[in-house]
Design a protein around this nucleic acid. Structure first.
Length: 506
RNA sequence: GAGAGAGUAGCACAAUGGCAGUGCACUAGACUGUGGAUCUAGCUGUUGCGGGUUCAAGUCCCGUCUCUCUCCCCA
């Protein structure tokens, strides 16, 4: 009788090779976020259910992992008449990193007025796993609280863009929309406010299922045909040729990435970026800068259509201002107005964004302004805006494109020992190597030395230190480079120096 | 939540309803202070699980579990 040893579906074990890549990626993200002045925060894996419920919309509530009451409390709850699912749990695994942040802001006393935090932690969703989709996955969030200034939007978008640029994933766009603008569009199309949510969900799928698909969706969800058609006309962006944009087809694609297969993957993987990388990025930005005008034109088009809706003026002005501000940030060239962008989460109130790339079906991350969320925990409302990168999806894209290059991990040296040397002497030698900064594994047994070398190869260790009676008596150590076969017997200090030299050379 | 496909050794895969196999990996030896190549030998199985049809089931049927893909939804 054996039990299933694979981790639960939608979760993964991370073996050393996986972790080497994950840590590398996380390090880049951390560094970029910190360069924008964000500071680290971590929160518990689980929260009170009341903290989580009602923040993400109905769909989100459904997907919350709930934790049952413990012990007696569960037994008592089960005995209550008419007990329902909701009465059995009081805690839930965090569903995202934004709601826990909002709770922290509402709870904490002496945070800076503008709290800029980043948070890289797992979140859990009781969802069905698929490609690039897990039940446990990592998000990399940045948020700025305490200001309504659109500088905050530009900064979070800029930081996210810098992460992608650093990693060599440049064929991205940031779709940009505004929750209030969406509401106005739906209103202008003549849809009743009750159908707002339904309509949002349907049009959010436009880029996946196409116009006809959305029409079908409208019908099945009981949205009146003429109003639906009006809405589609409002949100559909005219083809590029009819706009005054001098730019080429979009989304802008860097020549360095175009047609790139996994085979020639190393370029752009190294950090800091190479001169080529910088040049490619600069070209890309220059090309994309011309598109700024196209985005303004799209806003003009929407403004024209919404001339009769006074509530639309505010959000339109905000998007315009955001485009202007972002022109000075890394995000500028990547922003693209997309009136079909809706975003699933319930708490957004202002500008909303989503990172897209041809490399992945679905988004690589998203965010937006949520000025009401913190107020749900605290009497006074505190404005906030944030952006989240989907860690595993970014990782997936990088793996598919071979952008990791060679990320090394594991020990530098395997200390091999002949049977005529006491284990204690081997450990003393290992200590000396470790004090010199080398990562040293001691082979625990004493089979034939060749077997020990073979083991070193199998764990990708290139250097061997060999300790036998001969060396031990003379205070020496043999060192061998398993790649070249070069071997020397040297006094301990010289042997260490040689190992460090080899190790540095990679 | 809906639909389709797949489960055979650690991994990759074979086997017309008729003896469960091949490659890689692993272990040992050729080679007792020197690995990678080669050769030789060896090890690896409740064919996901439970039932049914059959003289006979990895193979056909039913159920179930798991995984993959598509849809839904999302990061």
């Amino acid at each position: 009788m054996s039990i299933n040893t694979s981790p639960p579906s939608g979760t993964r074990d991370f073996l050393p090779a996986d972790l080497a890549r994950r840590r590398h990626l996380e390090g880049v993200i951390r560094r970029v976020y910190e360069s924008f002045g964000f500071v680290a925060l971590e929160t518990p894996a689980f929260e009170n259910l009341s903290t989580l419920l009602g923040k993400y919309g109905d769909e989100g509530d459904q997907l919350l992992f709930r934790l049952l009451h413990r012990r007696d409390k569960l037994a008592r709850a089960l005995q209550e008449p008419g007990v329902g699912e909701k009465d059995l749990a009081d805690l839930g695994l965090r569903y995202d990193l934004t709601v826990p942040l909002a709770r922290v802001i509402a709870n904490a006393k002496d945070l800076p007025r503008f709290f800029k935090r980043y948070q890289i932690q797992p979140v859990w969703r009781a969802d069905r796993p698929g490609k690039g989709r897990y039940r446990e996955f990592w998000q990399c969030d940045i948020d700025i609280t305490g200001t309504t200034s659109l500088v905050a939007e530009a900064e979070v978008c800029g930081a996210v863009v810098r992460v992608f640029e650093e990693l060599g994933v440049r064929d991205i766009t940031i779709a940009l929309n505004h929750r209030q603008l969406l509401r106005c569009l739906i209103q202008a199309a003549g849809l009743p406010p009750a159908q707002e949510e339904t309509a949002l969900v349907a049009i959010d799928k436009l880029d996946k299922i196409g116009l006809d698909g959305v029409r079908k969706e409208f019908t099945t969800r009981g949205i009146e045909a003429t109003a639906g058609e009006r809405l589609l006309t409002l949100i559909t962006r005219p083809p590029e040729g009819s706009s005054p944009s001098p730019a080429g087809p979009r989304p802008p694609t860097s020549p360095a990435i175009e047609g790139k297969g996994p085979a020639d993957g190393e370029a752009g993987a190294q950090l800091p970026p190479t001169a080529d990388h910088r040049a490619a990025t600069a070209d890309h930005r220059a090309a994309a800068r011309a598109d700024h005008r196209a985005e303004v034109a799209e806003l003009d088009r929407l403004a024209g259509l919404l001339a009769d809706v006074p509530e639309a003026a505010g959000p339109l002005a905000q998007l315009r201002e955001l485009l202007d501000i972002a022109a000075g940030s890394a995000a500028g060239p990547y922003l693209r107005i997309d009136a079909t962008l809706a975003r699933g989460l319930g708490y957004y109130t202002g500008p909303i964004f989503e990172i897209r790339s041809p490399a992945f079906r679905g988004s690589l991350g998203g965010g937006g302004r949520y000025d009401g969320l913190i107020g749900m925990f605290k009497g006074t409302a505190i404005p906030a805006v944030g952006f989240s990168i989907g860690f595993e999806r970014l990782l997936l894209v990088m793996e598919e494109r071979g952008l990791f290059g060679s990320v090394s991990w594991g020990p530098d040296v395997l200390l091999c020992r002949f049977p005529d040397v006491a284990p204690a002497d081997a450990l003393r030698t290992a200590s000396a190597l470790r004090q010199a900064g080398l990562k040293v594994e001691v082979f625990p047994e004493t089979p034939k030395i060749g077997k020990q070398f073979a083991y070193a190869e199998s764990i990708k260790v290139k250097l061997a230190a060999i300790l036998g009676a001969t060396e031990a008596q003379e205070g020496k150590l043999s060192v061998k480079h398993l790649g070249t076969g070069e071997q020397l017997t040297l006094p301990l200090a010289a042997a260490i120096a040689r190992l460090r030299e080899w190790s540095k050379a990679g």
